[in-house]
Amino acid sequence: MMRYLIILFVLFLPIQSQALTAQEIVKKSQKAFLYQGKDFKARVLMKLITKSGRERIREMTMLRKNYGTSGGEQKYFIYFFKPADVRDMTFMVYKYPGRDDDRWLFIPAINMVKRIAARDKTSSFVGSDFTYEDISGRDLEDDIHTLIKEEKLGGRECHVIKSRPKAGDVNYSYKLSWIDKENFLPLKEKFYDLKGDLMKVFTADRFGEIKGYPTVVERTMKNIRSGHRTEVTFLKTDYNTGIPDRLFSERFLKRPPKKWIK
């Protein structure tokens, strides 16, 4: 009996302890960071801070719904509270893996829904240090991922992954990510420019557990060259709120229901 148990143990041991590949780590991280829950809702407060400390505020409600598995299609609905000149604007994104997003912007001053041509890869989101891709993620297949080391960061065991874009579609040459071994959230990301110099740094500053999902509720992206940084705080974060499909439509873009944006 004991012998069988040992054999069983030996049989399962390699599987249990077999190291995850870099690709698998990034995939798990993507799921934990960008695809958690069926849907997601948060009041997002962005502070754009110059080197000299001048602040500008962007405040919005962000709703996200997943369609399919992690890495699959998603829809975003964003309603702006601040600044005053974009108040009541809404923004909708249909995000597709492997191709460009569809985006619509509603301009309340002329009651017009406008389609927006924009590229994710390098475009700044509302003037912040985050690109669209930093907010909504990058396709797993767009980079070659390598596990370069494992180390502790702020007391947490991390995988350190190097992700090098396959095509020159972004303005950085590679990215190093410190991914928490336990919950797979990215704790830090360092972006290096084409000359190999450090360009911008992402840090996850505070965590919360919402409906059992570990969540980064405060984060910062800092531009090393300009000294400009953007601090993001998620308030009223929630998951699995039952966002209906029909919310992601022109009708509700023009007239966002209070229930979903407040």
Binding site: A117, A118, R119, T122, S123, S124, N171
Partner: peptide, 10 residues
């Protein structure tokens, strides 16, 4: 036809 030519330029 509208297109983003490079970052912040359309």
């Amino acid at each position: 036809y509208q297109k983003q030519i490079w970052e912040d330029f359309t």
